[in-house]
Each structure stands twice: as structure tokens, then as C-alpha cells.
Amino acid sequence: MNFDVDNENLKGKKIYRILLFSFIGVILIAAVYVSLRRTAARFSRDFMSPFLRIVTLTEDTAFFAAQLSKPKKQLALEVQNLQNRVLLLESKNHVLKNLEDENKVLRALLKLPPAPGFQPVTAEISGRTAPFWRERFVINRGWSDGVGVGNAVVTPDQVGNIVLVGRVIEISAGSAVVATVFSGDCRVSVKVETDSSTGGMEVLKEKALPVVRYLPIGGDYQPNTRVLTSGIADDTPAGIPVGIVVSRGKDVPPAVIRDQLYAELTIAPLIRIDTVRTVIVFTKKKETDQ
């Protein structure tokens, strides 16, 4: 009888030990995964980036080969047009540079801190998958190109005006992950163009349109009004178009009042996310660049 009790006690202890070791094992695996995930992600992207650049190079080579098949007259005309465009942009840039210098002087006179400067960096999408097609993608530029977490990512729309695509959320030496304005990971401070009311744009439910929250209740919010970046965060330039205010129906104001505290607007992003291939990242200018 005593022998049976001892045996059962031993069995109980064994089960208890197995459960304890399994529990510790699961905790250890989870801890190792959590701490190593970002490093592994960074390593994976950096390891693959030279190989993935081959794809971009091949695309470029094919594009150049296709250009060579065009008649010389057409190519000469295209070069002429591009030279004219470069001249126009150069002259516009010159005017803007003067304004920037003037702004610096005025800020110094008023003893205001210097405005943040931004350096545009072009990047191509190197990785994208169907389940997150509209929410996130990987670009072939990383911290070695000056890109940082939180940097604003833009691209030209159909008429050539830049619109906000999203923000950089993860980074490695040669690549970065961008969360688009359709992703819950992308939160941007924005303002309504008509009355400059400022709020925070975010996506509350995946696969839904983004909303602008914490706007003043008394603001003038009309459907189809543009929403722009506010520039409050020092890693996002001000005035980049993000989207337009969506109407909630005829004779219904577009703003929803939440808890009698703030107004909330639903916006339709201006970006045509499905066809984006090339983007521009606004990296922060270093002191030496300014």
C-alpha cells in the first residue's frame, strides 16, 4: 500500500517537473524570439538586399534596352524636353533656396529655433506581399542612405503632385519597412487645409479608411477638403497632401463628435497605393548639410 502511495507521489512529481520545464521552455523560446526578431529581420533584409538589387538592375537594363529601340529623333526630342524640365526645376529651386535663406535670417532675428531641413532620397519597392499589399512594403534604402524610423515617404500622384504614402517603421542598413496610410502602424499629425485645425491621423480598423481624431469641435469641416501633414513632428515636412475629407451623406456634417470632446473625420487617402513602384523618403538633413 505504502509502495503504491510512493509510486503515485513520484508520478505526480514527474508530471509537475515536466510541466514546469515545458513552461520554462515556452517562456525561454518566446523571450529569445522577441529579443532576436528585430535583429533577425535586419540581418535577413541586409543579407538579401544586394541580391534583390539585381532585380532592379535587370529592370533598368531592360528599360534602357527598350529605350534604344526608339528612333533617334524621338530620343533627341525626349532629351530636349527633359533638359527644359531640368532648367525649369533649377530656376524654381533657386527661388526656393533664396526663400529658405531669408527664412533662416528671419528666424535668427526672431530668435526662433531653426526649421528642420529635409533631404529627399529616392527608393524603389523591393518587397511587397498580397496580404499586406496596401498596408506595408520594403524599400531598397536604409540607414546607410540616411533614412530613419519615422521619416515621411511620398510619391507623385497621377498629375505629378507629391502625396503622402506613409512612414518608415523599421530599418536596416540597406532597406526599410514602410507602413502606408492604410496601416494601423502609421500615425501622422495632420491639419485640415481650410481652417488649419490639427489632429492625429490613424487607422482604427485594418482594411478601413483612416480617420483624423482629436480635432477641435467648432472647426469648419467640409467634404472634399484636403488634409495635409501638420509638420508638428520634426521628421515630417508640413503641407504634404494626405487625403480628402469623406462625406457621410447629404445634409450630414462630415465630422463626428466623440464624447463631446473632439471631432473625428474620415478621410480618403490621395495615394493610389496599388500602382506605386518608386517613392521618395524625406530624410532629416544633418547640421553639416544645412
Binding site: 535577413s44 534583390l52 506581399t129 499586406f132 514602410v178
Partner: peptide, 11 residues
């Protein structure tokens, strides 16, 4: 690891 992280997945 190589496929998912290069496709922008978190896990």
C-alpha cells in the same frame, strides 16, 4: 526568415 522579412512581414 529571408522570405517574410524581405516581404515586409513582422513575423
Amino acid at each position: 526568415f529571408l522570405l517574410d522579412f524581405n516581404g515586409g512581414w513582422s513575423h
